[in-house]
Design a protein around this nucleic acid. Structure first.
Lengths: 225, 225
DNA sequence: GTCTATAGCTGGATAGAC
DNA sequence: GTCTATCCAGCTATAGAC
């Protein structure tokens, strides 16, 4: 148990939709139960904040099983991390491969991001925490998705549309960072904003749903000349 | 030492400006050396990822000294956390107390945020990680700064300027979340972006400096009708 | 104030029975 | 595949000498 020596007390009222791809919770075997339990604990308490014993107890198995299926705690974490990362990147990169006008691509991009993150709201914090403590490894994983190619393509669209006077004078990189910031950060701040304002998870979901539309307007007004 | 069992290898090339307020590194006593060392380790490896022994060794003291000055590891962490938080909030809230036009307040806000975060680039990740694992306590600290009052004031400005047709139809909360996202997130992503693009800390600082101006343009174009 | 030594516990991982 | 028992390195915290 993580009770005794933890920093601060923690009520644990985070929105409980874990980024579980399968969904076959009930019929799952030991291996899947371990993955599902570990995902929840790693998301909530981080890698160092979660012990293999916590995972074993909470999943109703034992520490030997974790090592049997995943060789080590690190091995288990990597399985979960890659799964989360893949969810986040695959669909976004598909949208960015389009050849339509930048303003339209950006709108699809925002829609896709928000739809995705409403479903998996804890992924951003999870990935950012891991990235902050292990930039090298996370960067290696990012590179396996060929971000440079995706960037070049998008930069091409920006140059094309700027040449036609459709959008303002922003470099592609700055646009990308702005979009990612506007889409991802509301989810990273989510738990804190909810705590401060005292609103429920459902009410925050409603807010996020409306916020998405404002972000789309905001970006379109900013981008289009 | 945190070497043997750590997750992934870690080169540790994060920009090394720690959010040290005093600056009296050289003449500092034991207490200050512990705080400075602990800050760096907590920022890089998190609370659970840092041991009191790490802090004692790296600061050239011993574990007994840490407990002598700070009672516990948690006590030491809280000192550092509050210091970081105060740096981030105090100056921003001062800017938001203005009565000038929203577009001008927002521009000052962005300038203040970027100036501050260029100086203390690791604070956002540090606070967000702590907030993600302990929303209740962090929220308590936030509330001691009276955010509701600051929000109401800013919402008043938004309503006033919208009545005069100066800005578009965005609710105040959505504007705030957008600004915070656009200012803070580039620093949270910084280490990862640098790793992927391979650019140096200095070069990233240059990029951030230019990016600030694009954010100001971006927001002004989005906001002003 | 500073240090060494150590208590007492919890961590990841494995051996070996079934 | 599953489980219990166990190793031992690591952790936080403190006792007690100086």
């Amino acid at each position: 148990m993580i009770v005794s020596k933890r920093l601060f007390s923690f009520a644990g009222e985070i929105t409980k939709r874990s980024f579980n791809m399968t969904g076959k919770d009930s019929v799952s075997g030991v291996r899947q139960r371990i993955v599902d339990t570990a995902r929840e604990l790693f998301v909530e308490n981080g890698f160092e904040g979660t012990s293999v014993r916590d995972i074993a107890n909470a999943s109703g198995t034992n520490v030997a099983m974790v090592n049997y299926y995943f060789q080590s705690k690190t091995g288990l974490f990597e399985v979960i991390f890659k799964e989360a990362f893949d969810i986040l990147v695959t669909r976004i990169f598909a949208v960015l491969g389009s050849d339509r006008p930048v303003a339209d691509v950006v709108e699809s991009w925002i829609n896709t991001y928000y739809d995705l993150l409403v479903q998996y709201p804890q992924i951003p914090s999870f990935i950012l925490t891991a990235a902050s403590h292990n930039p090298s490894t996370v960067a290696g994983l990012v590179e396996s998705y060929n971000p440079a190619e995706v960037f070049e393509h998008f930069a091409g669209l920006v140059e094309r549309d700027r040449g036609q006077g459709l959008i303002g004078e922003y470099p592609a990189m700055d646009i990308i960072i702005n979009i990612v910031s506007l889409c991802v950060f509301p989810f990273v701040m989510g738990p804190l904003v909810r705590k401060i304002t005292g609103i429920s998870a459902d009410r925050y979901d409603e807010f996020i749903h409306e916020h998405k539309e404002h972000v789309i307007d905001f970006v379109r007004n900013a981008l289009v000349v």
